[in-house]
């Protein structure tokens, strides 16, 4: 079912690779120019009327953010994920809030958590859940969660820890060598 849909749309929207997960779930990759025409086509002509979610993955090794637009076709009970690769150093993306108003909320979240901007999306620059956030967007993989936690939340007095190898040396062979 999903394969035939892909075959029909492949050339028209210049689709990238097809990943079939299940009979009723597949993913395709699309370029930034073709995203909007593809989404419109899927919504208005193929029955994918519902935007389930819009999310991102940080492929820091490839210098890329992956956006995933997951659409649902209620009538035929099937989902399609539209993937779009965005260079990490140019993180502006076209808003689709005019296609699905709920997209504005996802885009606001992505702006906050990944630093991916969607100009013209309603309230996109307002705090979403991270009120008063001052660091880099926390879902970017270069964000050091542990460092942030240490710097932001002071230790209660009374903390101490031991490195296993060092502690074992102290206990078992303090002079540098055991005699075993």
């Amino acid at each position: 079912m999903m394969q035939s849909l892909y075959d029909r749309l492949k050339d028209r929207f210049n689709l990238g690779e097809f990943t079939g997960r299940r009979a009723d779930l597949a993913f395709v990759t699309v370029s930034r120019e073709q995203l909007r025409p593809l989404l419109l086509h899927l919504r208005d002509l193929e029955g994918f009327t519902h935007l389930v979610l819009l999310t991102a993955v940080d492929w820091i090794e490839d210098d890329t953010f992956q956006l995933t637009y997951l659409l649902n076709d209620r009538a035929r009970a099937r989902d399609i994920g539209v993937r779009l690769m965005l260079p990490r150093d140019d993180t502006q993306m076209d808003s689709i809030h005019d296609l699905w108003p709920t997209a504005a909320t996802y885009q606001r979240e992505l702006r906050e958590m990944f630093g991916i901007d969607f100009p013209d999306s309603p309230r996109v620059n307002e705090d979403f859940i991270l009120e008063g956030w001052v660091d880099i967007p926390p879902y970017r993989r270069e964000f050091d969660t542990l460092r942030f936690a240490r710097e932001t939340y002071p230790e209660r007095p009374g903390r101490e820890t031991h490195d296993p190898a060092t502690y074992m040396k102290q206990q078992l062979y303090p002079d540098g060598e055991d005699n075993g």
């Binding site: 969660t145 542990l146 936690a149 903390r159 820890t161 031991h162 490195d163 296993p164 502690y167």
Partner: peptide, 10 residues
């Protein structure tokens, strides 16, 4: 642990 919540104690 990403929160620095764990210590190793003898």
């Amino acid at each position: 642990c990403q929160n620095g919540a764990i210590d190793m104690l003898p």
